[in-house]
Design a protein around this nucleic acid. Sequence first.
DNA 1: TTAAAATAAATGAACGATCATTCTTTTTTA
DNA 2: TAAAAAAGAATGATCGTTCATTTATTTTAA
Lengths: 192, 192
Amino acid sequence: MAQLQKSIDKRTALLKATLSLVNNGGIQSASMAKVAKIANVSPATIYLFFENKQELVNQLYLDVKGSFAEAAFREQKSDDEVKKSFEKIWIAMAAFKLEHKEEASFLSQCDNTPMIDEETRQEGLKYLAPLFVLWSIGIKEGIIKDISPYLLYAFSIYPMAFLMNMDNRALCPLGENVLKEAFQVAWDSIKV
Amino acid sequence: MAQLQKSIDKRTALLKATLSLVNNGGIQSASMAKVAKIANVSPATIYLFFENKQELVNQLYLDVKGSFAEAAFREQKSDDEVKKSFEKIWIAMAAFKLEHKEEASFLSQCDNTPMIDEETRQEGLKYLAPLFVLWSIGIKEGIIKDISPYLLYAFSIYPMAFLMNMDNRALCPLGENVLKEAFQVAWDSIKV
DNA sequence: TTAAAATAAATGAACGATCATTCTTTTTTA
DNA sequence: TAAAAAAGAATGATCGTTCATTTATTTTAA
């Protein structure tokens, strides 16, 4: 019982250490030795929890994507209008990314690395299902453009990653005003 | 004279080899030894052209960004309307990314790697100056939203990276129709 | 209830491979 | 023949991973 908790704690510590290392130095710099050191564990111990480095990173991907989705859809109410519902989700996503910069940056890095395998990506995509459902409702109601959800995502959600990047580099600080403008742009792009 | 050309050729071969390696395996997998082997050169020779690996990658970044920009603005005419001009640029960018997938994927990978230093990023940004000029004209004419160019870029250009990613993974093939839809979305997002 | 035995968890050291980089030597060029 | 260009071998460091061993926990037997 306490044993199980200890296992969970150690796993969490390993994921956290990986996240932190990836965040300053990229995935390549998160070596198993460093991860072990930060998690106060022997390198060999990592392999009791994860088959190899790739699985470690993939598990972290699912873990982070999961908490991102959880935050995004937390305040969903079924009787909201489509636009209002989308706005809530959009704002919650932005808030999560601003509050959890390490997580957000990690997810961005995952977009373009071959380290995450296709199966895991598909699994991660499932977390966003409520958004796709909302869009399909919006399309049926004639509120949202009748185009591929990939297009909708590309133009209304994906840009956040760029904005967060600019915010981190202090090139375009995301205050409340800019965020409101950004949402307006996002909505304009997908509304019919 | 012929010596100079040989130098240029070798440099080009090195950049090309790096691009190819980064493309299947990520930046980490483009080791100096592999780059040398593919370029038919000794590892030591690389250091006659580039100070270290970071400079090699940064130079490649500028090189690729340069040809991307060249392709993007090739058909610009000064008497085009703002919308028409933007459409030409947008289509040319998409065409470049579709025709040069290795280059496009490399640039995407560069967005989120610490390997590219801030100075080089700024330098690369300068290549896009004509686009920013166009936008400022559009803003003055009341055609384009009066918001930060970072926002305009995030919502009208950056999404291409996501779409190319989906196209490569065969999740959302970018035919002519989808491309036209995508441009419409891009324009809707930034138009006033 | 306690001591011994068995099992599980965790370790640090070590593996071969590969990394970026440099050194010395050889080849090419002028 | 002198100088420049390129080569291959070698450097120490670090990579992901595994191995033999120790430590901790649980089970068994008295």
